[in-house]
Design a protein around this nucleic acid. Structure first.
Length: 273
DNA sequence: ACTAGCACCTGATCGC
DNA sequence: TGCGATCAGGTGCTAG
């Protein structure tokens, strides 16, 4: 569920509340909350101090005063919450970290999210090394990304969602970016001009930056920041979830189609194949 | 090597 | 009121 703007909102909240805090105790509460590729149990971070909170695409990690990091992915429904000691346990509480004055909690209804211990290599956890830099990363290479898009014979929306090409974009912002760039989601990526792919990248950057300013998109309580508050970007969506509603540009009705097992929303008039 | 499809979960909602 | 079908913002494994 959470895409780059939502994960970045969470990262900033964690930075504000957890930086330079010592982790006194860790309590894992669900077996699926630990990624099977984790180097060891997450209780390993007991006694460590949080030195930095980093992100690449939708992956977050806590850098510690140790040679490894605590990596987190929110999956579809993961949340981090800062709570006072003794607050009632949330229904889907999956792990508890005791800091000096507060508890950091990992909550996840659908259990697609996870935590893991992962070695750092050049500042990036091994578990994240196959993920391409995202649009807000200074390592993001625009020309190389355009080339990668052009090397793919599949539908451009699938490529947008491929985290090894460019990370951070999920189903909502993919539809929004394609709408803004006036590209049909089923266009073959390799058949698009460099200029068109450039427009798509620009659109993804502007839509996600705007969403970030509004604290992200949320339809329900499954996405919130570390204080349990929702974002406001839902009001600004032009394609996602707007099936049968008029396109803001041309008033044709937005269509929803399913491919790759998920919904795609687009304007049949502005976004032609 | 690349691509497409499905599996992994829980819960909300909708139609009958 | 109850039940089954469908849907949900992600990733990763596997079969072709």
């Amino acid at each position: 569920m959470p895409e780059l703007p939502e994960v970045e909102t969470v990262r900033r909240g964690l930075e504000r509340w957890c930086l330079n805090q010592k982790i006194f105790a860790v309590e894992p509460l669900h077996p699926r909350a630990t990624n099977p590729r984790s180097l060891s149990a997450i209780t390993e971070v007991s006694g460590a101090t949080i030195k930095k909170i980093a992100r690449r695409g939708k992956f977050l990690w806590f850098e510690l005063d140790r040679p490894y990091a605590l990596v987190a992915h929110l999956g579809m429904s993961g949340q981090f919450r800062i709570q006072p000691f003794g607050a009632v346990d949330e229904k889907h509480l999956r792990a508890r970290f005791s800091l000096s004055k507060k508890e950091l909690r990992f909550i996840d209804q659908r259990t697609f999210g996870w935590l893991a211990i992962s070695a750092l290599e050049d500042g990036v956890p091994t578990l994240v090394s196959a993920i391409a830099p995202d649009l807000l990363d200074e390592k993001f290479d625009r020309r190389a990304t355009v080339k990668k898009f052009q090397s793919k014979r599949s539908e451009v929306k699938r490529v947008l969602l491929d985290q090894s090409v460019m990370s951070g974009v999920g189903n909502i912002y993919a539809d929004e970016s394609l709408w803004r760039a006036k590209i049909h989601p089923q266009s073959i990526a390799a058949e698009l001009s460099s200029r068109k792919i450039g427009q798509l990248i620009d659109s993804a950057e502007s839509v996600m930056s705007q969403a970030l300013l509004e604290g992200g998109t949320s339809f329900d309580s499954l996405y919130t920041n570390v204080n349990g508050e929702s974002g406001y970007f839902e009001h600004s969506l032009q394609a996602y979830g707007r099936e049968e509603q008029p396109c803001a540009r041309c008033h044709a009705l937005i269509r929803r189609i399913v491919f790759g097992g998920r919904s795609s929303h687009f304007c049949p008039k502005c976004q032609k194949l």
